[in-house]
C-alpha cells in the first residue's frame, strides 16, 4: 500500500512538471484543443446530429441549404450528420490501430535492445526490412489477403506500422540498460524481467508516448485511404468511406464540392491535431531541442 502511494505521488509530480512545460507551447495547446474537440464530437454525436445519418432524408446531391448545411449525398442522406458520426469511426480506428502497432513495436524494441545478441539481430533485421517498405502498398497487400472490414483495416495497419516504434524503443533501451541505476538494480539481485518492467519501461514510455501521436496521424491517414478505395464497412461510414461514395457517384466530374471538401477537411484537421501535439511534445521532452 505504501509503495503504491509513493508511486502515485511520483507520478503526480511528473505529470504536473510535464504540464508546466507543455503549457508554454501555444502550438501544443492548439493541438490538444483540436483533439479534445473531436473527442467531444464523437461522444456527443447522437445528441447533436440534426438527422439520422443512415436514413435518406432528402433528394440525392442537394446543395447546402439551411435545412442541410452541408448538402446531401448520393442517397439523400444528410452529410453533416454523416460527418459527425464518421468522427467516431475514424477516431476509433486511428487510436486502436496505432495503439496496437505501438505496443507491438515497443515490445519488439524492448526485447531486442535488452537481450541483445542473436535475438536482437533477428528482430532488427526484420524491422529494418519492413521499415523501408512503402507502407500503403504493403497494407493493401495485407487487406487483400485478409478481406474487407474495419477489423481487417485495423489489423493491416498494425501489422505494417509497428516498425518505427520498435526502432525508437530499441535505441532507448540500449542506452538505458548501461545506466548506473540499472547496474544498481542488478547488483541488489533484480531479475531481468523486473529490471525491464520497473526501470526501463517507465523511462521508455514518455518518448514512445510522443511518437504515438505521429503513429495516430499515420493510422488516420492510412484508414482514410483504405476506406477511400472501398475496403471499409459501408454500414459504418468513416470519412474515407464518404469520399469513396463521392468518387464513385461522380462528385468531382459534376462539381458536387460539398460532397468532396468537408470530409477531407475533417480528416486533415484531426490528423493535424495529433501532428502538432507530436511536434510540441518533441520540443518539450527533448531538452536538446529546447536549447537549440
Amino acid at each position: 500500500m505504501k509503495g503504491l502511494k509513493l508511486r502515485l505521488r511520483v507520478l503526480r509530480r511528473r505529470v504536473s512538471n510535464f504540464w508546466r512545460i507543455y503549457r508554454t507551447s501555444k502550438l501544443g495547446l492548439a493541438g490538444l484543443a483540436i483533439i479534445l474537440g473531436y473527442v467531444a464530437l464523437a461522444v456527443m454525436a447522437p445528441y447533436i446530429t440534426p438527422y439520422d445519418p443512415f436514413e435518406s432524408v432528402a433528394l440525392p446531391f442537394e446543395e447546402p441549404s439551411p435545412q442541410h448545411p452541408l448538402g446531401t449525398d448520393h442517397l439523400g442522406r444528410d452529410l453533416l450528420s454523416e460527418l459527425i458520426y464518421g468522427t467516431r469511426v475514424s477516431l476509433m480506428i486511428g487510436l486502436t490501430a496505432s495503439f496496437i502497432s505501438v505496443m507491438i513495436g515497443t515490445t519488439v524494441g524492448l526485447i531486442a535492445g535488452f537481450f541483445g545478441g542473436k535475438v536482437d539481430t533477428v528482430l532488427m533485421r526484420l524491422t529494418d526490412t519492413f521499415i523501408q517498405m512503402p507502407q500503403l502498398p504493403l497494407m493493401l497487400i495485407f487487406v487483400s489477403i485478409l478481406g474487407k472490414g474495419i477489423l481487417n483495416i485495423v489489423l493491416a495497419i498494425s501489422v505494417v506500422a509497428w516498425t518505427a516504434s520498435a526502432r525508437i524503443a530499441r535505441s532507448l533501451t540500449l542506452s538505458l540498460k548501461e545506466r548506473p541505476f540499472v547496474e544498481a538494480a542488478r547488483a541488489v539481485g533484480a531479475g531481468s524481467f523486473q529490471i525491464l518492467w520497473r526501470h526501463i519501461v517507465p523511462n521508455v514510455f514518455p518518448v514512445i508516448f510522443a511518437y504515438a501521436n505521429i503513429a495516430v496521424v499515420d493510422a488516420i491517414l492510412s484508414e482514410s485511404f483504405l476506406s477511400f478505395i472501398g475496403f471499409g464497412d459501408p454500414r459504418t461510414p468513416s470519412w474515407g468511406m464518404i469520399l469513396y461514395f463521392a468518387s464513385r457517384s461522380g462528385a468531382m466530374s459534376n462539381g458536387f464540392w460539398w460532397f468532396v471538401i468537408p470530409p477531407g477537411l475533417m480528416i486533415m484537421t484531426l490528423a493535424l491535431g495529433f501532428a502538432i501535439t507530436n511536434y510540441s511534445l518533441d520540443q518539450v521532452l527533448n531538452p536538446r531541442l529546447r536549447r537549440r
Partner: peptide, 9 residues
C-alpha cells in the same frame, strides 16, 4: 496531415 488522395481530388 493532408490525405494525399484527397489533395488529388
Amino acid at each position: 496531415s493532408i490525405p494525399t488522395f484527397w489533395m488529388g481530388m
